[in-house]
Simulated assay, not measured.
Amino acid sequence: MKTCLVADDSPVIRKVARRILEGLDFRVEEAEDGQQALAACQRSMPDAVLIDGFMPVMDGFDFCKALRRTPGGGVPKVLVWNTENEVAVMARAIHAGADDVLLKPFDRAQMTNKLTEVGLIQAR
């Protein structure tokens, strides 16, 4: 079973993502900010990380940079999500080390498509 770390300062977003991911047969761990997410990855590297770009303590962009410098940190597929549909924000995420960007609000179909595009699941 693949593992996914969901990091967002909103408990509602974490809950929605958890339900979608568990329905796609992922084991899910949660973090409230990028610093907690990085610590979780250092304990046990997941297959995927879905993280909010804009959070207190450590945002998703700084998390990506730190993760990619961590031993084994090149392995997880990272999706940065945010509410801004701006090229500059998307480019910032990719430049920081994300594999792709997912816009909020998202649904099961959108998340499934992104996870398929980055190779975490097979097309259904």
Rank of each mutant, 00 (worst) to 15 (best):
G60S: 10
P76S: 11
Q35K: 15
F63P: 07
L115W: 04
P105V: 08
P56A: 14
V89F: 02
Q35P: 01
F54R: 05
D33F: 04
P11W: 01
C4K: 00
A109Y: 09
I121Q: 07
G73L: 10
I121M: 05
T70F: 06
Q35S: 12
R92N: 09
R18I: 00
F26I: 01
V6F: 05
D100F: 03
L67C: 09
N113Q: 15
P11C: 05
V75G: 11
V12F: 13
P71R: 10
A39L: 12
D99Q: 03
M58D: 02
G97F: 04
D52Q: 05
R27S: 15
R108I: 03
V101N: 07
A98E: 10
R18E: 15
A48P: 04
M58S: 08
F61N: 03
L103Q: 14
P11M: 06
G53I: 08
G53V: 01
T70I: 06
G73N: 08
M111Y: 09
E84N: 09
N113G: 15
M90L: 08
D62C: 10
S44A: 15
R69Y: 00
N113L: 12
L120W: 00
E32K: 12
N85Y: 05
A98R: 11
T116L: 04
G73H: 09
A7T: 15
V49F: 00
S44C: 13
G97R: 11
L24T: 00
G73M: 06
L67R: 05
H95M: 09
L50A: 05
L79I: 13
D107M: 05
V75K: 11
Q35D: 14
G34V: 11
P76E: 12
D47L: 07
L5V: 10
P56E: 15
L115H: 09
R124E: 04
K104M: 11
V78S: 01
D52F: 01
V89M: 14
A37P: 02
D33C: 10
G119W: 04
L79D: 04
R92W: 12
K2G: 01
K114G: 12
W81T: 04
T3H: 15
E84W: 01
G34C: 07
D25S: 10
L67M: 10
A7D: 00
D47S: 12
F26K: 00
D47T: 09
D25R: 13
R43N: 14
E84I: 07
R27Q: 12
P11A: 05
A123G: 08
I94C: 08
G119V: 09
L67G: 08
L21H: 01
T116Y: 11
D100E: 13
E29L: 11
R68E: 01
L38N: 06
V49N: 07
F106I: 10
I94Q: 08
T3M: 06
Q122I: 04
R124C: 06
V16H: 08
V16K: 04
S44G: 14
A96V: 02
H95C: 04
P71V: 10
L21N: 00
K104F: 02
L103M: 09
A123Q: 14
P71D: 08
G72Y: 07
L50H: 02
D62Y: 06
I20V: 11
S10H: 12
T116P: 03
H95A: 15
N85G: 04
A40S: 14
V80W: 09
A88M: 03
V57R: 13
L79Q: 03
G60I: 08
A37Y: 03
N82R: 05
P46A: 01
D99P: 03
A91E: 14
